[in-house]
Write a protein that binds this DNA or RNA. Structure first.
Length: 397
DNA sequence: TCTGGGGTCCTAGGACCC
DNA sequence: TCTGGGGTCCTAGGACCC
């Protein structure tokens, strides 16, 4: 989906169309502008001048999405709001409304599923679709079906998307970025040299900043330069799995199937504080935040029907270093008190000298609530007492 | 200019078991 | 006399993605 969060916001604030808008923050609301609305007015009636501007924003946070006009100024996803304010002070800032984005996410996925049942969910704004056996999926190399999907999605939601069609997920993902927004791009197997090899390695889904940096140190900038290296050389320098994988992707090879169903592995809640907090000085506040996170997480688990038995915490210190601790208990739970109690033990095992900027809680090793595994864990798994030493360590502190 | 929240997967060492 | 081999689970950290 093109600039998904921002595009959804533009549906309810059409007066902002064509303007530089960023989505982020979340603490400062447009509530005041809404309160000032005359009787009977709608969101679309809020004057453009009444929206909060990036330059007036104070507080932590990053941009999740920027409209294309905002991107002209170099503003983009994951950028800190303070930096974005320097680049584009006159941009309008809107708070994140994840519930709304989820509604539109469900809507566009439903449209796709009606046409092409083999769809893999890749998050709120992205999917893979297997065109192979969809009627008409092979016409014009897939272009005709891609057009049909774009139209159906637009008619139902008013949102545009960009589609890449290719022999596999790896290339399709890259192709989807060739023609944004509202574009279609077809990449055939024979196009590898011409269309894929000139791309920077970073464009490969799975090569992030670290791997890219290392590749650059070897003088490898493009996918083509990666393909030119020996498979054995890549394995020697990047490890068996990563090296072999890099070799495969550089030659456009990817045999991963489109996976239509999957079970969650973990669920978590975390929050960045308005200001850094000290474990001692702000103990009460931290305790209250932690309890709330545990309650939210328990509610998430219960609503979705999952229980888990690995409970963990996450801290981010003021210097941005991260520490995690977890403990596996001998039964599955979705109970806030249990999560809070085990999480509390985890917190006792982590250094708390530095100021904290984030606290999170996580439940992993999930099972469906009421499933045989969740009900009788000792009967199905090997009977072990491996969690004991950890509990002992915790009690020593 | 300090940098969100919710995820997945991988690695690696140690415990423990057969 | 140093000390098999394989497997799973647990834990901590890190890369990466949307």
């Amino acid at each position: 989906m093109d600039a998904f969060y921002a595009s959804v916001e533009l549906l309810r604030y059409p007066q902002l169309k064509g303007k530089a808008v960023v989505i982020g923050g979340g603490r400062r609301r447009v509530d005041e502008a809404i309160r000032n609305l005359p009787e009977g007015g709608t969101l679309a009636d809020i004057p453009v001048e009444d929206f909060p501007l990036l330059k007036d924003y104070t507080g932590r946070g990053v941009i999740t999405t920027a409209t294309y006009p905002a991107r002209q100024f170099g503003v983009g996803s994951a950028m800190g709001l303070m930096k974005a304010a320097k680049l584009c002070p006159q941009a309008i800032i809107l708070p994140v409304d994840f519930d709304e984005y989820r509604r539109y996410s469900r809507a566009f996925k439903k449209i796709i599923l009606e046409v092409a049942p083999l769809m893999e969910d890749r998050g709120v704004d992205e999917v893979y679709i297997d065109f192979t056996d969809v009627p008409g999926g092979q016409r014009e190399g897939g272009r005709s079906l891609a057009r049909l999907l774009q139209k159906a999605i637009f008619d139902a939601t008013g949102l545009t998307c960009s589609i890449g069609v290719a022999p596999n997920k790896l290339i399709a993902k890259m192709a989807s970025e060739f023609n944004k927004p509202n574009g279609i791009s077809i990449v055939y197997e024979d196009d590898l040299e011409k269309l894929i090899w000139p791309l920077p390695c970073r464009k490969v889904n799975g090569i992030g900043p670290k791997a890219d940096e290392k590749l650059k140190r070897f003088g490898i900038e493009t996918v083509g330069q990666l393909a030119a290296r020996d498979r054995d050389w890549l394995i020697a320098n990047f490890g068996k799995a990563t090296g072999a994988w890099m070799h495969e992707v550089s030659w456009g090879r990817d045999d991963r199937p489109v996976v239509t169903e999957s079970e969650p592995v973990s669920m978590s809640r975390e929050t960045t504080f308005d200001r850094d907090l000290h474990a001692v000085r702000d103990r009460a506040e931290l305790g209250a935040i932690f309890t709330r996170l545990c309650e939210q997480l328990a509610a998430d688990l219960q609503r979705k029907g999952y229980v888990g038995k690995t409970i963990g915490i996450k801290l981010r210190y003021d210097d941005f270093r991260i520490a995690t601790r977890d403990q596996t208990i001998d039964r599955f739970t979705d109970d806030a008190k249990t999560i809070r109690q085990i999480g509390g033990l985890c917190l006792k095992r982590v250094p708390l000298e530095r100021p904290l900027r984030l606290l999170g809680v996580r439940v992993g090793t999930l099972a469906k609530a009421g499933s045989p595994e969740a009900l009788a864990p000792a009967a199905t798994g090997t009977h072990r007492a491996a969690a004991e030493p950890v509990a002992t360590t915790a009690s020593l502190f």
